[in-house]
């Protein structure tokens, strides 16, 4: 009996606890958004970065609000998100050292192809959302603290509407689950183009309105303030931060396509 236990303990030691991080490898942890990760952008550009610098980038893809929270607590070395106001505030409050434009794409209004609220003929995105509210047709919202949700709230504000009622459904989910729900209930939804292009379960959904400059969706890289979190790999993070706007980084972003379409447009200087 005792021998059995001893053997079990020995076996456990041999199996070994899954190790944390070996000291030799050079990597940073990047807090970013689901839209960039799920579109496949990182799988496209990180190998290029790794080849040229020997640094690996581990992406934790969450909503923009959660990405800010992770970075504020010192759990990520770098930050790449899409909420201009939030990024500026992050820097202003001393969490970030500097923010720079990296790339952009746009938000699009998705809905059932029959388009019951006739948003396809709208003058602009504000008019389109007013038509949806007027027709009281189902609209699903992220309802989380994501960059896309923050953009959606800004447009509702411009439209002078505070959406409520049974037609407006705030889910509290990521972009993908929200699109799955919209597909299931034939609802309208504001989405980022990256997630939409990589989304496989479209059913009856289609792009109904796009191209308004209010729908501009800029992504920024934020360098985290080393004074607040001295343990972070600030030097490696800065190499990544600079690489994103280098010629090589910008070219890598531009060469990423889905279904033959570019997904992100470089905007670094």
């Amino acid at each position: 009996m005792i021998r059995r236990i001893r053997r079990l303990v020995l076996g456990l030691l041999l199996l070994g606890l899954p190790g944390g991080v070996s000291a030799a490898d050079r990597h940073i942890t990047l807090a970013s958004t689901t839209s960039t990760e799920q579109s496949g952008l990182f799988a496209h550009i990180i190998p290029v970065f790794r080849n040229s610098t020997g640094i690996d980038v581990r992406v934790v893809a969450v909503g923009t609000g959660q990405a800010f929270a992770i970075a504020r607590r010192g759990d990520a070395d770098a930050l790449l998100v899409h909420d201009r106001d939030g990024e500026d505030e992050f820097v202003a409050r001393g969490y970030g050292q500097e923010r720079q434009d990296v790339m952009y794409n746009d938000f699009i209004l998705i809905g059932p192809s029959q388009d019951p609220a006739a948003v396809a003929g709208a003058d602009n995105i504000v008019d389109a959302l007013q038509r949806i509210a007027g027709a009281r047709v189902p609209f699903v919202s992220r309802g989380d603290d994501s960059g896309t949700y923050r953009a959606e709230r800004r447009i509702w504000e411009l439209a002078g509407i505070s959406p409520s009622g049974s037609w407006y459904r705030a889910l509290g989910s990521g972009m993908g689950p929200t699109l799955n729900t919209a597909a299931g209930m034939d609802a309208y939804v504001l989405a980022d183009r990256g997630t939409w292009l990589s989304f496989g379960n479209r059913q009856n959904l289609t792009v109904l309105f796009e191209g308004d400059e209010t729908l501009f969706n800029p992504y920024g890289s934020v360098l985290i303030n080393p004074e607040r979190h001295p343990h972070l790999k600030h030097d490696l993070a800065e190499i990544w931060h600079r690489w994103l706007i280098s010629d090589e980084g910008q070219a890598a972003i531009a060469s990423f396509t889905l279904r033959g379409e570019p997904v992100f447009f470089p905007s670094g200087r």
Partner: peptide, 9 residues
Amino acid sequence: ALETSRGDL
């Protein structure tokens, strides 16, 4: 969970 949210059911 990831593939579900990418709509690759």
